[in-house]
Write a protein that binds this DNA or RNA. Structure first.
Ligand SMILES: [Mn+2]
Ligand SMILES: [Mn+2]
Ligand SMILES: [Zn+2]
Ligand SMILES: [Zn+2]
Lengths: 142, 142
DNA sequence: AATAATAATTGGAATAGTTCTTGATATTGA
DNA sequence: TCAATATCAAGAACTATTCCAATTATTATT
């Protein structure tokens, strides 16, 4: 039983188990942070921010937690070029647009009814398990 | 003046300069290899294979050559998850399908007339400079 | 052709993100 | 309560890539 801190944001409630993964204190805070700050932080950014609530957490544990969450399909790992991996709690199928000017990463949804096989010449017999779409560009200020 | 080796494949001719980049012996062999073996090799694979023709080449030079070729738009760098970068001489806009069973990477072309803005809800005002589409799955044997 | 200036290559050291190892802690379940 | 199991923490190890400094090759100039 944890007493609720007087945060500006209401604290996100996280159950004791998600998709078969036990939510330890560390996993809970890592997941909570990703839910709150949906800016695709790196492992190190998660580490620095989550230390506010778990001062003794280690970077290795943050990596362990992120991997466990990814493995259980609770969050997604997002890679861009050779940069550090980033993490995303948005489970709907989506891509990522990186604004080269600001560095901000925007989620990009598919338009409804779009099928990959409609736009790509897939190899015959290909069964797609995973799709990664990454865009880089600028946001023209209107 | 280099005497032509009795290769099975006819040797690809490469000019002294491409897109403003001077073709040194090392750059030429790196580029030639990518043209011949279009299986998206890693820097280290390029290194090992190109040593047949340039026994003294260093891995640092392979990286230098690959970077120069990428910088001048002569080849493309392809990243998949956290794996080593791979390199691709196919300059037409295309994506990559990774067959999880065999490890083979297939180029995937866009169907003609497809526009990204047709299938994705891009942020308003977004100007796309670069697109990366990566698919992972299996090739069902018919 | 000789010389000077510039660019490229090499081999090894350094870097950085991530993973591994090991001992301590915590949780579960008998 | 005790044993079995899972998780965590700290730091070492790993590895793809980049950096550095010295050498070599190329280009430009006289
Ligand atoms: Mn803070
Ligand atoms: Mn060989
Ligand atoms: Zn996302
Ligand atoms: Zn390709």
């Amino acid at each position: 039983m944890v007493s609720k801190a007087p945060d500006i944001f209401p604290e996100i409630e996280i159950p004791d188990e998600i998709s078969g993964l036990r939510m330890t204190a560390q996993r809970r805070e890592v997941y909570r942070l990703l839910q709150q700050e949906r800016n695709h932080p790196t492992a190190n950014e998660v580490f620095m921010r989550v230390k506010d609530r778990l001062p003794n957490i280690s970077l290795a544990t943050v990596y362990n937690c992120l991997e466990a969450l990814v493995q259980h399909g609770i969050i997604r790992q997002v890679n861009f070029e050779r940069e550090s991996s980033r993490y995303c709690p948005n489970l709907s199928e989506h891509g990522h647009f990186h604004d080269a000017a600001t560095g901000v990463i925007h989620d990009v949804d598919f338009k409804p009814g779009v099928n990959l096989a409609d736009v790509l010449n897939l190899p015959p017999g290909a069964v797609i398990d995973d799709v990664e779409i990454t865009l880089r560009g600028k946001l023209a200020s209107a």
